[in-house]
Design a protein around this nucleic acid. Sequence first.
RNA 1: AGAGUCAGCUGGGCAAUUGCUGUAGAUAGCUCUUCGUUUAUCGCAUAGCGUUAGAUGAGGAAAUUUAUAGAGGAAAGUCCGGGCUCCAUAGAGCAGAGUGCCAGGUAACGCCUGGGGGGUGAGAACCCACGGCUAGUGCAGCAGAAAAUAAACCGCCAGAUUACUUUCGAGUAUCAGGUAAGGGUGAAAUGGUGCGGUAAGAGCGCACCGCGCGACUGGUAACAGUUCGUGGCAAUGUAAACCCCACUCCGGAGCAAGGCCAAAUAGGGAUCUAAUGAUGCGGCUCGUAUCGGAUCCGGGUAGGCCGCUAGAAAUCUGUGGCGACGCAGAUUGAAGAUGAAUAAUUGUCCUCGACAGAACCCGGCUUAUAGGCUGACUCUUCUU
RNA 2: AGGCGCGUAACUCAGUUGGUUAGAGUGCUACCAUGACAUGGUAGAAGUCGACAGUUCGAAUCUGUCCGUGCCUA
Length: 122
Amino acid sequence: MADYGFPKTTRLLSAEDYKAVFSNSQFKASCRHILVLAISNDCQHSRLGLVIAKKHISKAVQRNKVKRIIRDSFRLHQDTLAGLDLVVLARKDADKLGNPQLRDKIQKLWKELADKLARANN
RNA sequence: AGAGUCAGCUGGGCAAUUGCUGUAGAUAGCUCUUCGUUUAUCGCAUAGCGUUAGAUGAGGAAAUUUAUAGAGGAAAGUCCGGGCUCCAUAGAGCAGAGUGCCAGGUAACGCCUGGGGGGUGAGAACCCACGGCUAGUGCAGCAGAAAAUAAACCGCCAGAUUACUUUCGAGUAUCAGGUAAGGGUGAAAUGGUGCGGUAAGAGCGCACCGCGCGACUGGUAACAGUUCGUGGCAAUGUAAACCCCACUCCGGAGCAAGGCCAAAUAGGGAUCUAAUGAUGCGGCUCGUAUCGGAUCCGGGUAGGCCGCUAGAAAUCUGUGGCGACGCAGAUUGAAGAUGAAUAAUUGUCCUCGACAGAACCCGGCUUAUAGGCUGACUCUUCUU
RNA sequence: AGGCGCGUAACUCAGUUGGUUAGAGUGCUACCAUGACAUGGUAGAAGUCGACAGUUCGAAUCUGUCCGUGCCUA
């Protein structure tokens, strides 16, 4: 049975972690509203970081909502992305999507990343 | 029944599954770690100190699990007022900033309550930066004759040793005057109506109204008055113009304040040390400065911890007060994150869910806000 | 979160303190000059001064409240 928890070990915590992902990102996946960067890490599991800029989503309620949905989706799909440090950036108008649409989009991006990872390992 | 005014409350509910953060407890001693006791081992300068490994006791982290709590009325804007913290600081004044009818409330306020005055509305009610331009200084474009110690453009008026005309009444022009009743300009033109008065007029005089000043009465006061006296009126607007008056603040920053622990790297200070070393100053010795190693010390970055939520607290009761609010008693423990929790999915119900997310904490103000509920009051219509 | 500043022509800025006329440069349009283009010359258009209230006879300017935008503090 897969572990669907989201404890602190599966998050990016310090500024250095983020810096590492930004400066040498190995994998990329994006759509109109979301961009995902990733590098492989030394852990067994994957780790998630979120960058939701105030510039792109102006209202705090909307920012929180987007973060929650992405986090929840990551929680349910993290077993397919093992060994990656991920940073998810929200682009403009990401808050205009409905909850189910946002969910679909992020799921597709997870899948794309998983494929790329498999290809790189082979 | 309809229309409306004010005040208060609420801000989707239920169920299942999967998650997050705090707090309290439990678990196994499988993982990491701190301190102590003890056994073995190895090293050395050997009553000792240190290395490594094991056993054991206590604590912490992480993990698993159970219970429990978990955004707002505005959490927002940052427009005011405080608490708290640090730095600065003899005291007083000037300067500066703010407030501005009166009284009270408050930790304090630019907030609130009650009262006064003015305005809006049929009314319940609502709105008002509401001290002073009779302390001084300034400003008032254009238009208009004149714009602030008033003023004569048109008009009106009697006069003249004047000129012309003449129907001999006077008229026109000119001169030097009087006049603020009428005209037009302007946002604004120096009380209103009537009577008298006059050459024409004029607060020039009078009556009433309005206004100023003083007294009296009521009121803590602002202020009010079918009161009395007095002044012919002197007093245009503007203080969100300078300013005057009264009161308040009066050093500065803000939890990214501030305090504690503290790696790596670089650098600082103190002590010891050896080649009796190297380099610079110097012709050489002496001297002096720098350079090596070890130990200790303090500052301090990354990072971590505290600050952090029990407070001008909430609720209820009693009591004083018209009220804001005060006082007394009882009860309650109610978010505290830090790449930042408080949710997601599914089902279901209804009226189909607005504005919107704590970040040190309070008191206000302002702005945004779907719908629902309660109470008090006003007006209109109908019925009894 | 806390603390500062700025909104004026399409663009870059004056004017705001001290109230009564909105101005400069670049760009744009038309014409002149040239065989043509650039340069040059002449003329012209373009602004509810971020929005809404208030004070005033009168507001880009004074006062208040919102909106947008930028910067600083780890």
